[in-house]
């Protein structure tokens, strides 16, 4: 380092002398390279001024005093810049470290929260979940019960990023620990509510929908905890109908009784579930209305459920001023027999 410094200082002096004498472009190009080498080695601006002063004094020992003082003055003026530069350098390094740490965490989250889409005869399932940032605060899961019923969970933690993602693991483990038996959705939400209430900060909460679908009867029993409503698509009438139950979000109050309701779907009918990332989509200043989502779904009715949800997301992605405000999750379940 010391060698480098001395070598470059000498070079600087040589280039300076050359420029003062001939004012040639080559010297200017030379000093540009020296300057870049200094930046690379974290040499601060005031040190460069110092090199300049020393070089000048050696080249012209008879410099008049007031000019010399002015250079000392300049040196002092550069010191704050040097400090600011150092700070930026440190921040840059920290940022790189943080970024890689978060990407490791995001990867780990992906593995932890992985859920398998069940393969059930007569049922076509499509699901997409896209995080607004690196980590996803949305979660969906399928539970296969021994009696053939399927639990469907969709949840959204308030906020985005790391805290939301950590919080979501709690939901996953609670769901995983359920017995593989058909359980009324309000009971499941009630249990989860207590878990979340006990284990989160006061301004954390989770919105969730839990439903149990019976492939044999085509009946969906469901319960909502402050979650975006679901939509039932009746193929015969080509119509979407909203369905939900009233219920407080998870984690706010300890004693909440959740309600239960049910719908029965026929062949080619669909159940559409989503998180608020879908309804809060914006195209510049324009909010996307739910009818627009329906229209897009209608365009892709001929596709499989998985292609459908992907096309819907792609449609929004293509909007000119589209920016994902929140984690976006969309689930479509279609009865095919």
């Amino acid at each position: 380092m010391e060698n480098f410094f001395k070598e470059k200082a000498d070079e600087y002096k040589k280039l300076l002398a050359e420029y003062i004498e001939f004012q040639d472009e080559k010297a200017l190009y030379g000093v540009e390279l020296v300057s870049k080498a200094f930046i690379k080695h974290n040499i601060l601006p005031e040190e460069i001024v110092n090199i300049h002063i020393k070089a000048l004094k050696e080249l012209y020992p008879d410099l008049f005093a007031s000019f010399e003082h002015s250079l000392d003055f300049l040196l002092e003026a550069m010191i704050s810049y040097g400090l600011a530069h150092q700070e930026i350098q440190n921040l840059r390094e920290q940022q790189i470290a943080l970024k890689s740490e978060i990407s490791v965490a995001a990867q780990m989250q992906k593995t932890l929260l992985k859920t398998k889409k069940p393969d059930i005869a007569g049922l076509d399932i499509g699901v997409i979940s896209v995080p607004a940032n690196q980590m996803n605060g949305d979660y969906y899961s399928f539970l296969q019960n021994l009696d053939g019923t399927i639990g469907i969970a969709m949840a959204d933690v308030i906020g985005k990023g790391v805290p939301a993602a950590l919080c979501m693991s709690m939901i996953k483990y609670s769901l995983d620990s359920l017995p593989k038996e058909s359980t009324p959705p309000p009971v499941i939400l009630g249990n989860l509510n207590r878990v979340v209430e006990r284990n989160t900060e006061s301004n954390m909460f989770i919105t969730m929908m839990y439903g149990e679908y019976n492939p044999e009867t085509g009946k969906l029993v469901y319960s909502f905890a402050g979650h975006e409503p679901g939509y039932y698509y009746c193929a015969d009438e080509d119509r979407f109908t909203e369905f939900s139950t009233a219920g407080l979000v998870l984690g706010v109050s300890e004693d909440v009784e959740y309600e239960q309701a049910e719908i029965e779907i026929a062949k080619n009918d669909m159940i559409v579930l989503m998180t608020d990332g879908v309804t809060e989509c914006r195209d510049g200043d324009r909010f996307i209305e739910i009818d627009e989502v329906f229209d897009v779904i209608r365009q892709y009715l001929h596709l499989s459920a998985q292609d459908m949800v992907q096309e819907v997301y792609r449609y929004f992605e293509r909007l000119q001023d589209f920016q994902l405000q929140d984690d976006f999750s969309l689930l479509i379940l279609r009865k095919t027999v």
Partner: peptide, 15 residues
């Protein structure tokens, strides 16, 4: 308002 805003109001209510 997004869900972060809702969280604030819940926090305020608890307070």
């Amino acid at each position: 308002m997004d869900s972060t805003g809702l969280g604030l109001f819940i926090g305020a209510l608890k307070s």
